[in-house]
Deep mutational scan, measured.
Amino acid sequence: RPRTAFTQNQIEVLENVFRVNCYPGIDIREDLAQKLNLEEDRIQIWFQNRRAKLKR
Score class of each variant (00 low, 15 high):
I11Y: 05
C22G: 09
P24E: 03
W46R: 02
L32G: 00
D31A: 10
D41N: 15
R51Q: 05
F6T: 01
L54P: 14
E30R: 14
L36I: 11
I11K: 08
I11N: 13
K53Q: 14
Y23V: 04
L14R: 01
N21F: 01
Y23M: 05
D31C: 05
T7F: 02
N49K: 10
I26Y: 09
T7H: 07
K35C: 04
A5L: 14
R42Q: 15
G25R: 03
N9W: 06
I45V: 11
L38I: 13
K55N: 11
P2G: 15
L38P: 04
Y23D: 08
R3F: 15
Q10M: 12
N21V: 04
L54S: 09
E40R: 09
N49F: 03
V17T: 09
N16K: 11
R50A: 08
A33R: 03
F18T: 01
N21S: 05
K53R: 13
R3M: 14
E39Q: 09
Q8E: 12
Q44R: 12
V17K: 04
N49Y: 02
K55R: 06
E12L: 08
W46T: 02
L54D: 11
R29A: 10
P2W: 11
A5F: 15
N16A: 06
Q10E: 07
A52E: 13
N21M: 11
L36T: 02
F6C: 03
Q48I: 08
E30A: 11
R50P: 00
L32K: 01
D41M: 09
V17A: 11
N9E: 14
Q48V: 11
L36C: 05
F47L: 01
I11C: 03
R51D: 14
T4N: 11
K35L: 05
R3Y: 15
Q10H: 04
Q34E: 10
Q44K: 14
G25P: 14
K53E: 14
A5D: 15
N9Y: 12
T4F: 12
Q48N: 07
F6S: 01
I11L: 08
F18C: 03
R42I: 13
I11V: 09
N37P: 11
K53W: 06
K35D: 04
R19F: 05
E39Y: 03
I11Q: 10
G25Y: 02
R51M: 10
E39C: 10
D41W: 13
R29G: 02
N49S: 08
Q44F: 06
L54Y: 08
A52M: 07
F6G: 01
N49V: 06
A33D: 00
A33F: 02
A5V: 14
T7E: 06
D31W: 04
I45G: 11
F18Q: 00
V17D: 01
Q10W: 01
E30S: 08
V20Q: 13
N9T: 10
Y23A: 12
V13I: 15
G25S: 10
